[in-house]
Design a protein around this nucleic acid. Structure first.
Length: 309
DNA sequence: GACACGTGGTC
DNA sequence: TGACCAAGTGT
């Protein structure tokens, strides 16, 4: 190891050198997204985080607006049948998220007095909230100091600090350690850093066609300084879709979503010709709680328990 | 740790 | 044009 000069400090050695430029860039270039406005509140932040899991902002925007207008508080959603959440989810994909968001709203109504909890452990205990979302809600909605490690932040750190093009497939202990080491000490600064580093990954330090010319920390980026070496190692396995159970589930659920009430078996049979795979997909939807079988071979979105008043 | 889990846009 | 990608979670 050669001696480190003050003018050549690495990002990991001097995290403060990253905070100011990235946060300043964020103040200039952050998108005006509805869940970032003060009126969104913790519930708005939480709804947006569920919808944004594996789903682009542009597709989330219209559904988010309708959702918040219809269910402005967790208790409003909790009072609905879960099937209504699935229906309102529309074509966002991964409809189990709608079911989990509904379940989280019920838990908030029952256990947390109708207020989205600010405690990280309580957030983590809610259905559909994992490591990332718990940290995101605590940080974005409540200004707390948490390492928020999503795919954008992981890519920014992989490049700026580690000097590689892409982060590992799954989040590693080393990444968590690095994220904690880079986290500003002061709570409010840490929360801004979390949002800013994520936005940088979403707008500039993107997976393909990154724009280093617009990057506020290009001068310190380990990957750029190393000549931007291409990712080595095995190609990440692509997501196949055509012909999979996933596609069949999607078609079946689309029929249910577009029907006001229940549909006959024949309506489901019509969307996929192969009976074994179709049956397997339908069974999966039922066991996931996304579809409810009725008497007489009819099906509908889940109605939930009867309202007892 | 690998896999299942939707959908649509991009290059 | 088919892979890759998109603010992950649960098993």
């Amino acid at each position: 190891m050669t001696a480190t000069h003050a003018s050549q400090t690495s990002p990991a050695a001097d995290p403060a050198a990253l905070h100011l430029p990235v946060i300043a860039w964020f103040e200039q270039h952050a998108r005006d997204l509805p869940w970032r406005r003060p009126e969104a509140g913790a519930w708005g932040v939480m709804v947006s985080e569920f919808m944004l899991q594996q789903t682009p902002v542009s597709r989330v925007l219209p559904v988010y607006e309708q959702w918040l207008a219809r269910w402005p508080r967790p208790a409003d959603l909790a009072a609905e049948a879960p099937g209504e959440a699935v229906r309102a989810w529309g074509r966002l994909g991964y409809p189990r998220r709608a079911l989990r968001l509904h379940g989280a709203a019920q838990a908030i109504a029952e256990r947390h007095g109708g207020e989205v909890p600010s405690d990280h452990a309580q957030l983590l205990a809610l259905p559909g909230i994992g490591e990332y979302t718990a940290a995101a809600v605590a940080s974005f909605a409540y200004g707390q100091r948490h390492a928020v490690l999503d795919t954008n932040v992981r890519r920014v750190f992989a490049r700026a600090a580690t000097g590689v093009q892409y982060p590992p497939t799954a989040t590693t202990a080393a990444e968590r350690r690095l994220a904690r080491a880079l986290l500003p000490e002061e709570e409010g600064t840490a929360a801004r850093w979390a949002a800013a580093s994520m936005e940088l990954g979403a707008l500039v330090c993107t997976a393909r066609n990154e724009e280093c010319g617009r990057c506020p920390i290009a001068a310190q980026c380990a990957w750029r300084l190393a000549g931007k070496p291409a990712h080595d190692g095995p190609a990440r396995r692509g997501q196949t879709y055509a012909g999979t159970d996933r596609q069949v589930r999607g078609r079946l659920l689309a029929v249910l979503r577009d029907a006001p009430g229940s549909v006959p078996q024949s309506a489901l049979d019509a969307v996929w010709p192969e009976p074994v795979q179709r049956g397997r997909a339908l069974d999966g939807l039922v066991s996931d709680g996304l579809v409810e079988p009725l008497e007489g071979g009819r099906y509908r979105l889940p109605a939930g328990p009867p309202v007892t008043g």
